[in-house]
Amino acid sequence: MDADRSTVAHDPGRLVRPFAIGIDGTPATAGLGLLSRVAARRPPGPADHLRPERESLLRLAAEPQSVAELSALVGLPLSVAKLLIADMIEAGDLEPCTAEPQLSGDDVLQVLLDGLRAL
C-alpha cells in the first residue's frame, strides 16, 4: 500500500540519512527542473545491481517520468536526485524528453479547462 507515502506530510519527521553515492565530477543540473521528463535509454542490467539508485531510476524511467516523481519514488532528496539524473544523462543511460509544442499558451488553458470540467 501507499499509505506510508500519503501520510508523510503528517509524519513528525526524520533525520537525514547519510548519503554516499558515487558521481564522477559535477554533472550540470541547470537544465533539470521539477517537471523535466527523462526516459531510460536501456533497461537495467546485471552490472547495475551494485548501484541500486541508478538501477531503480533505469526501471522507473522505462516510460518518460518527471524528475519530481523520480525523486519521490527513489526516495532521494531533490538535489541529490537531480545530480544523479544529470550524471546518468551524461553517461547516456537516461535521455531528456521534451513535449512537442503542439499547443500555444491560450490553447493549453482551454485544453486544461475542458479536461478538468470533464473529470
Binding site: R5, S6, S71, A72, L78, S79, L119
Partner: peptide, 13 residues
Amino acid sequence: SVSEIPPLSTEEV
C-alpha cells in the same frame, strides 16, 4: 483529493 495518484512526497534538505 484531486490527484489521480496517491500524493507523492519528495524532500529537500
